[in-house]
Design a binder for these strands. Structure first.
Lengths: 224, 224
DNA sequence: GTCAAGAATCTTGTATGCAAGATATATATT
DNA sequence: AATATATATCTTGCATACAAGATTCTTGAC
């Protein structure tokens, strides 16, 4: 038996959550997970604690672990934090971006364009994440890069719900292109401002979607 | 035996680290900690995992847990993140601050002034933390507030080393007053810009101090 | 038939035991 | 004497065991 199960378990669970296989609010049973992964509860618990620290799950004492289910307020606040953090990344990237960063960024933007052209919202989903991640990396600041990635992952399950909002991809792509232009021009302020708006509007659009879904759910629940 | 040891242990260890009783780089022995707190290794391990997630300690697989010891690069990068995050807080606080927030902030600023007047750098240390925390709170965004506090704590052990830099308190207080003025005027851009500079300069001053200390240590080590 | 109280069951939190990797020590070799 | 190697010891990572709080089911009263 070789050591270090916990990282593997953490990654597997993280993947399940980010990819949507585990839904927000769902309970994570320690014994069940232990059996599924063929380990004891100990490394499972350690992985769960790590995930709770990164915001993907919530542990309620004596009640168990649940895939994080952000309420409307917390969700809006998280998107606001993301917007501020990404705006900072854009500003720093505009100042420091090197040739390699520029190439990576251009590639990610091209992938976004291709996804829009083919109408593949799933491809856009990951190309979008790569575009944003390329900006984090272009700050040259690994601490900021890591924090931004962590937050991006924590919000991923919610972004997923947005995939099919009409014309979302097109407007998002246009915003990406404007951000790219500001970055290429070295205009940090402009890039930051556009990035902030880009992320904030996602949060607001998402809030509207959430409200609609909740109204729908209540309408279904009440008469039944 | 009542449940829930882990939170207590986490807080106690966090306090030991933030207060400086445990030095950066120091090893944390699981058995030793377990004996000291009168518990088994299990809750100790869980507390250590949580602390590693918040950045206060570092766990190296099969090697053990150590109080986080940031290298120069990571430290500068962390201060840069802090500067961006606090700048965002200042901007949001300028827009949203209510009467209660304003009063808390004024109180914290007064405490900073009193500490400078009496030359009590230890009192300034905590009044300074309270001033910054009041700004996080004034954003009205609990997620941002929590992240800012977490990062503040993670950097606290390093700020502590800076306590006795000559005239540090006076310049810091002057910067606080300028930030307060911008906040009161509702000038978010100005407040953000001043806050960013305030935090960045701390990071740079700290780097200089660290370099001096390292040079001193090497000078002592080489000839002996 | 609904609701409340109590018992049975389940799940979590902590303790303990054991195996494997890491560190320290002793020995041998050059 | 210094270095490399083998061995002993220590520490971590994981499995298992058990106790206490949470949940569910049953039973009784209204």
């Amino acid at each position: 038996m070789r050591g270090e199960q916990t990282p593997r378990l953490r990654e597997a669970l993280e993947d399940d959550i980010v990819s949507g296989r585990l839904r927000p609010g769902q309970k994570l049973d320690e014994v069940g997970l232990a059996e599924r992964f063929g380990v004891s509860r100990t490394p499972i618990r350690e992985a769960l604690i790590q995930l709770s620290a990164s915001g993907l799950i919530e542990i309620r004492p004596r009640r168990g672990a649940f895939v994080a289910l952000l309420g409307p307020r917390e969700l809006l606040e998280s998107f606001e934090l993301m917007a501020e953090l990404e705006a900072a990344c854009a500003r720093l990237a505009a100042q420091r971006m090197g040739a390699a960063d520029r190439a990576t960024l251009a590639g990610a933007l091209a992938a976004c364009g291709a996804a829009v052209a083919s109408g593949d919202s799933c491809a856009y989903y990951s190309a979008n994440a790569a575009f944003h991640a390329a900006i984090y990396a272009a700050t040259g600041n690994r601490v900021i890069h890591g924090e931004a990635l962590r937050l991006q992952r924590a919000l991923q399950p919610y972004r997923r719900l947005q995939l099919h909002v009409p014309r979302r991809m097109e407007t998002s792509l246009a915003e990406h292109e404007a951000i790219m232009a500001a970055l290429s021009a070295g205009d940090g302020m402009e890039a930051a401002e556009r990035m902030r708006a880009h992320v904030l509007v996602q949060g607001e659009r998402f809030m509207a979607l959430l409200a609609a879904l909740q109204a729908e759910a209540e309408a279904l629940a009440a008469p039944g």
